[in-house]
Every structure is written in structure tokens, then in C-alpha cells.
């Protein structure tokens, strides 16, 4: 292909790609921009770029609906459920990757199948059990549910990462006198840090955005950002700027995490079927 033609083509493709990308990104962009407007200016689309910018909406969101409490609930629930899941899944993934038996495969498949059970199928009993145990609207309750929800994904992701660690090195540790616990702590975990980190990130993202259980099992106390945002679904006068500010705050941290972990995401979300 000739140089000139190739450059011309690259220009065209670049323009098309940027236009498409901006259209897809537009709702997010618009939300962020609107969050820096006053309520009156927010709906004045025709003069959107002439009106002044302000950060007052952010303060209003905080004072009106205590954004930070929900934010901390989200952090506690997503990070807590992820750490809990890691605690269970690191030993399990170790077993599957390094001491497989004839049944390991079936167990992994079965774990995956639990992930496919629709939440509505078990909503009623979980709701009733939580009600009986007093776990409704409780951060611990949600942490446990989200941990269980994501455990199969976490085990699978870790399994695919562990599989890439040469078994020789673990055996060397055994020869060097390491017990199983020390083998995990001193050798496997440090070597798998990149894999564990991306598993952690993906799981935090999934837990942060989970919006079935968080909406159905919380009320006021343990409500995370998903519920906080949902409380804006019945409008009260002009609230575009406040809604935008709240939304920006809710998605910003996770968007950054998502961008960081985008490469590993594919692997995690497809259970290693696409790498």
C-alpha cells in the first residue's frame, strides 16, 4: 500500500473512531459537565457553554443526602466482600491449579454454574433468611452475599493466573522446608501479585456496581451508592446538577479502576475463554 494512501486512510479512520467514541462516551461526559453547573444553568442546553461553572452542586449533594456515608458503605461492602472472597479463593485456586484430582474440573464447572443462577430465583428465601437473622440493611449481610456472588469468578480468575506459575518453584519451596502455609505466603502469593491485584480490581468493580441485592437488601443504614443514586429516581424540582454531581462521584473511582484493569477484565469476565 502506498504511503500517502495509507496516511489518508489513517486520518479518515481516526476521525470516524473519535466521533464514535465521543458519541458513546457522551452521556458520561455530559454528566460530568452538568455537575459543574447551577441547577438553572444545567437545563439551559442552548447556552450551556456560556453560563458560569461552579462546584456548589457537590456541596449540596453532600449536605442533602450524606454522600460520604453511602460512599463509605460502598467501599466497605465492595472491598470487604472482595477480601473475604480472596481469603476463600486463594487456597481453593491453589488446590485446583497445583493439586488437581479427577474431580477438579467438575467442581470448577459446578462453581461456574452457581454464578449463572438468576438472583430472582433465590431472592425470596434470601430476603426472608436475612429478615430472620436481622441482616437486612446490614453491611455484613451484603458483604457476604456479594462475596458469594463473585466467588466463582474470583476462583476462576486466580486459577488462570496460578496456572501460569511453574509448579517447580512451589516444589522447590517444599524441598526448602516450607510448610503449605509458608509456601502460600512466601512464594505463591508474592509471585501472583499481578494476578491477584487484577482479580481484586475486577471484583471490586463488580461489587461496587452490583444493583440487585444492594437495592433489595438495604434501606437507610447500609445503603451503598447504587441505592443512594436510585433514591434520585423520583425527581423533586430541578435536580439535574445535583444528580450529575452525585453520579460523577459514584462512578469516578470505579471508572479509574476499570481503566487500569481493562486488559485483565476480558480474561476475568469470560472465565479465561478469551484471552
Amino acid at each position: 500500500m502506498a504511503r500517502a494512501a495509507s496516511t489518508q486512510r489513517k486520518v479518515t479512520v481516526t476521525i470516524v473512531a473519535w466521533v464514535v467514541a465521543l458519541v458513546i462516551f457522551f452521556p458520561i461526559l455530559w454528566t460530568v459537565l452538568t455537575s459543574f453547573k447551577s441547577e438553572g444553568d444545567a437545563i439551559n442546553i442552548s447556552h450551556f457553554f456560556q453560563t458560569p461553572w461552579s462546584i456548589e452542586s457537590y456541596f449540596e449533594v453532600q449536605s442533602r443526602s450524606d454522600y460520604f456515608r453511602h460512599f463509605f458503605n460502598s467501599v466497605i461492602i465492595s472491598v470487604g466482600s472482595t477480601l473475604l472472597a480472596l481469603l476463600f479463593s486463594i487456597p481453593a485456586a491453589w488446590s485446583m491449579a497445583f493439586a488437581p484430582t479427577s474431580r477438579t474440573r467438575d467442581i470448577m464447572m459446578w462453581m461456574l454454574s452457581t454464578k449463572m443462577m438468576p438472583a430472582v430465583g433465590v431472592l425470596v428465601p434470601i430476603y426472608l433468611i436475612f429478615k430472620t437473622l436481622g441482616l437486612l440493611d446490614n453491611a455484613w449481610g451484603l458483604m457476604i452475599v456479594l462475596m458469594l456472588m463473585n466467588l466463582p469468578i474470583v476462583i476462576w480468575m486466580l486459577y488462570t493466573y496460578f496456572k501460569e506459575i511453574p509448579v517447580d518453584i512451589l516444589e522447590a519451596a517444599r524441598m526448602d522446608g516450607a510448610t503449605l502455609g509458608k509456601e502460600l505466603v512466601y512464594v505463591l502469593v508474592p509471585m501472583a501479585v499481578p494476578g491477584i491485584a487484577s482479580t481484586l480490581l475486577l471484583n471490586i468493580i463488580l461489587a461496587w456496581n452490583e444493583a440487585f441485592w444492594t437495592l433489595n437488601l438495604t434501606a437507610a443504614n447500609a445503603a451503598p451508592l447504587t441505592a443512594f443514586i436510585a433514591s434520585y429516581s423520583s425527581p423533586e424540582g430541578l435536580f439535574w446538577a445535583k444528580l450529575s454531581a452525585a453520579s460523577t462521584l459514584a462512578i469516578a473511582p470505579i471508572l479509574v479502576l476499570g481503566w487500569i484493569s481493562q486488559k485483565q477484565l476480558v480474561r476475568g469476565l469470560t472465565f479465561g475463554a478469551v484471552k
Binding site: F25, I28, A227, Y232, L243, S247, G258
Partner: peptide, 15 residues
């Protein structure tokens, strides 16, 4: 392009 995937469903719906 991949950004919308990280937006929590309640936020996308409301936006």
C-alpha cells in the same frame, strides 16, 4: 469506548 461498562446500572439508568 469501554467507559460505560464501569458505570453502575442505577447511574446509567438515571442519567
Amino acid at each position: 469506548v469501554i467507559a460505560p461498562f464501569f458505570v453502575m446500572p442505577t447511574v446509567s439508568a438515571l442519567v
